[in-house]
């Protein structure tokens, strides 16, 4: 089932122009250390969009994977991701979902082979964090696929510095 879902997504992404020669995509996300009374690690989703906000591919979802009964109940709180693609996914998904991450710098490394069907062009990596008893924040990082480039942005509440590298 999981493999089927991935295959379907790849097929959709390859519908348009010729795929770019595969580089790797690395995203670094800082989860801020917050001094609050009841801290829970945030749920975080990282995905690729086109400039018109249509989703291309979810790269990572960090949620309470170990809580089989209730861990997915709050996926909807990452509202933007849920609406643009999350709600159509089957989770957990190999290579995409994992446990919530501790404060500090976290990285998402996507080997070029996984994005082999993605046509060259302008895209946006979107990072959304939603925290229990806390807030929600979305950070958008425009980048170019098909050539080596870097980009950075920063959140102000639930996310810290975000940087992105496309290698050839």
């Amino acid at each position: 089932m999981r493999k089927l879902t991935l295959a379907a997504t790849a097929a959709m992404a390859s519908a348009a122009a010729a795929p770019a020669l595969a580089g790797d995509l690395n995203v670094s996300v800082e989860i801020p250390r917050l001094s609050v009374a009841a801290y829970h690690r945030p749920y975080v989703a990282v995905w690729i969009e086109r400039p018109d906000n249509t989703a291309v591919r979810t790269l990572a979802v960090w949620y309470e994977v170990s809580n089989v009964a209730e861990g997915k109940d709050w996926l909807k709180d990452m509202r933007t991701w849920w609406r643009r693609g999350g709600r159509a996914m089957t989770l957990p998904a190999d290579g995409v979902s994992s446990a919530t991450k501790a404060p500090g710098r976290q990285t998402v490394s996507v080997p070029g082979a996984r994005l082999a069907g993605l046509p060259a062009g302008d895209y946006v990596v979107v990072i959304e964090a939603a925290r229990e008893l806390g807030g929600r924040e979305v950070v958008r990082v425009p980048f170019r696929w098909g050539a080596a480039n870097t980009a950075r942005a920063s959140g102000s509440t639930e996310l810290g510095a975000v940087s992105l590298t496309v290698t050839r």
Partner: peptide
């Protein structure tokens, strides 16, 4: 109105 999980 918008829910996630196995049931709700």
């Amino acid at each position: 109105t918008v829910l996630s999980g196995a049931d709700a």
